[in-house]
Design a protein around this nucleic acid. Structure first.
Lengths: 187, 187
DNA sequence: CTTAAAATTTATCATATGATAAATAATCAC
DNA sequence: GTGATTATTTATCATATGATAAATTTTAAG
């Protein structure tokens, strides 16, 4: 739990009361490598914080497994398109390594926002940051070649190569695994 | 100004006090077709609401003009990657038609959040919605063909074709104008 | 360890899209 | 309205990436 609180501290420090209220609606969970954390078709009512390990969000397009995103230690994970709309998600969350998560009950969290203005501000800032990240990713997918995207990824997050299988990285970059292999070979 | 208030009403109704405080930090602006609303290199300190017309956000990649997004009536526009980070934006905002905007001073808005919790909640929800939109757009760019993306666009927003030049639509879809022309021809 | 399963690479061929240039159509300025 | 500018389409050729299959390497299970 402490990992979450120190992470929060860096984003927007909240009052001890808010922190304690937040602690009340959190659960610590463990998953083994490859284990499914949340299934496709499930409506997302949890915001996870990764305290140890790596997870990915994925979905199927024409029966092909596509990785939408990875998250490592000290990052939040949620299927936004379900969490913020209340609709069932077409995406799943899976542990890529043995992973420890802190699960925040989103309905309880949203209720806490009424009492704890600072908690709402914190999560507003978290969403803002996630939003900026996705806007930048659109730019990358819109007009960069697969090779440029691969190079950018290993520059920004060299850990990914060590901890995430290439088949997941390929679909994350919007290409097939074979194509990624080809790009890696020509160096 | 009324267009903004009625739009807000549908998202998250705010108190009359909050509405009046918001009104105080807004300005109504008009731009003619093709006019630049905000320049590249400028740090974004404004959230716009489109009350009439269409605007686009664009940037240059290798001297080629790329449209990141369009916004029509009753939508908010801001260069998130600058607004939320305080860094100068590499993107510009331009009117595609004669356009009326309501400009919200973001620094003043963020200060109002301290007094008006409901205003912060409103904007949290607006950001959440924008975030969901961009996440869905990543999915579209990640593994759909150019033709699928074009078909999805005209299905979801048929107005775009009538009001936005094809050269802007092409780069928005992540393809060249010539390629878009080819896709349109094969029908 | 040994074997099976999974991940990654390599090879071949097909195709969608890019780059460039030119033709045509639409829009704008006077 | 007329000519100039801009937008769109068409054509040709080049290339990056996809699809498929097979070989190789790595990982996992017993």
């Amino acid at each position: 739990m402490q990992a979450l609180f120190s992470h929060i501290q860096k984003i927007y420090p909240i009052s001890p009361e808010a922190e304690s209220a937040l602690g009340e609606i959190c659960k610590e969970l463990s998953f083994t490598k490859n284990q499914t954390i949340q299934e496709i078709g499930h409506t997302c009512k949890t915001i996870y914080f990764v305290s140890k390990g790596v997870v990915r969000i994925y979905y199927y397009k024409d029966a092909i497994d596509i990785t939408e995103s990875f998250e490592f230690e000290n990052a939040f994970v949620a299927r936004a398109e379900s969490l913020f709309t209340g609709k069932p998600s077409q995406k799943a969350i899976q542990a890529i390594e043995d992973t420890n998560l802190i699960a925040i009950d989103s309905n309880k969290l949203f209720k806490l926002f009424d009492e704890h203005h600072d908690l709402e501000r914190l999560f507003r800032k978290i969403i803002e940051t996630s939003y900026v990240t996705t806007v930048n990713r659109i730019e990358s997918l819109q007009f960069h070649t697969a090779e440029e995207r691969y190079n950018a990824l290993i520059k920004e997050a060299p850990d990914v190569l060590k901890r995430v299988p290439l088949k997941f990285i390929a679909s994350y970059l919007g290409i097939t695994q074979v194509s990624l292999s080809r790009i890696r070979a020509q160096k």
